[in-house]
């Protein structure tokens, strides 16, 4: 007698999401919990944590935003290996505005987010027609190229970078600004991906010919997705410029490209929430492992492998499945 695992939606899921007939507190909590938990968590964490971990939280949020930006691009069929491009361009936009013209951070950050998104879109416009690994290679190369250009031409402070940026008024403004943006971006773009518009984006990655066949100009949609992802990345770069009060060549380092991908893959791609969750796991883990000195990166790598092997679907997908469905073994004939 063979057995097969069967997955069935929980009754409470059907009542509260598909039929939407809320009749008890339990059902309301069931529906609200997945939304409230991250909101309350993100708003409470800064109060609970000490000064050191507050700093870590900033970098968690930045990597979460980069991972979300990666995930949006990946959903549209563009696998980017160069989130550092978005981060760096945003960082330099804010840095230049603040350093040369003394513009307030509350203006440089939004301006850098929009302008950064536009610049990144322009950079990648010529390669939009490339697919798969060819597109990825170009995204990997552009940030490396930009570093060399800055080094060789000595523009924007050359290898020294630009320092003495205006900081944000207080660490509370810093931390709640980034947390607020992270939550807004997470919920808004999750909603976007679930909408019909999001379905068209996913269609481009899944089967672009069938999308073209609907008379849709996929390149225009790719540009939009690129701009959205670029702006999110550029925002995080601009934000960090004002936190570090410095912008220089390190903004283009590979970490900003690779870690977001690891976060999205470990957390579960395609949901944005998974990408965020991944960043909330990986960044603090990397900090916690600091005590191991040289072995840190080894342990970090081992954890990554364990996660990916044990939960190839991603942590978020796993949690989501357990939350909405129960499993049972059923007997199969023969």
């Amino acid at each position: 007698m063979k057995k097969r695992k069967e997955r069935i939606d929980r009754g409470i899921k059907v009542r509260s999401t598909d039929i939407f007939a809320l009749s008890s507190w339990r059902e309301m909590i069931y529906l609200a919990l997945p939304r409230l938990l991250p909101i309350v968590g993100c708003l409470m964490l800064p109060i609970v944590l000490g000064v050191y971990w507050q700093k870590v939280l900033l970098s968690v949020a930045v990597f979460a935003l980069l991972a979300i930006s990666w995930d949006i691009l990946a959903q549209t069929g563009m696998v980017s290996l160069g989130q550092a491009l978005f981060f760096g361009v945003g960082a330099y936009c804010a840095g230049v505005l603040n350093h040369y013209w003394g513009v307030s951070p509350f203006i440089t950050i939004p301006v850098a987010a929009i302008a950064g998104g536009l610049i990144c879109t322009l950079f990648l416009l010529p390669v939009l027609r490339l697919r798969g690994i060819y597109f990825s290679m170009v995204t990997l190369i552009i940030p490396i190229m930009l570093v060399r250009i800055i080094e060789a031409t000595k523009i924007f402070g050359g290898t020294e970078g630009l320092s003495g940026m205006t900081p944000l008024p207080s660490k509370w403004v810093e931390i709640y600004l980034i947390m607020g943006v992270l939550l807004t971006v997470l919920f808004c773009f999750r909603r976007m991906l679930d909408s019909d518009y999001g379905l068209v984006l996913k269609g481009i990655s899944d089967n672009d010919r069938s999308v073209i066949n609907a008379g849709i100009n996929i390149y225009w949609f790719k540009v939009q997705s690129l701009f959205i992802a670029g702006s999110i990345g550029a925002f995080s770069g601009a934000f960090m410029t004002h936190v570090y009060m410095f912008v220089g060549m390190p903004v283009f380092v590979l970490d900003y490209s690779i870690l977001p991908i690891a976060a999205a893959v470990v957390g579960g791609p395609g949901t944005l929430a998974g990408a965020t969750l991944g960043a909330f796991l990986l960044v603090p883990m990397s900090e916690a492992l600091r005590g191991f000195g040289g072995l840190r990166i080894v342990l970090y790598g081992v954890f990554l492998v364990v996660f990916i092997v044990a939960l190839p679907e991603g942590i978020f997908h796993y949690i989501q499945r357990k939350y909405h469905q129960f499993e049972r073994w059923v007997e199969v004939e023969k």
Binding site: D196, L199, V200, N207, V211, A214
Partner: peptide
């Protein structure tokens, strides 16, 4: 197309959305 390639993990009617999103 000769090879049909729908969104396998979406309900059939959701597969129509892309066509209905068409500027046409």
């Amino acid at each position: 197309f000769q090879m049909v390639k729908p969104f396998y993990n979406l309900p059939a009617f959701k597969n129509m959305i892309i066509s209905l999103y068409s500027p046409r």
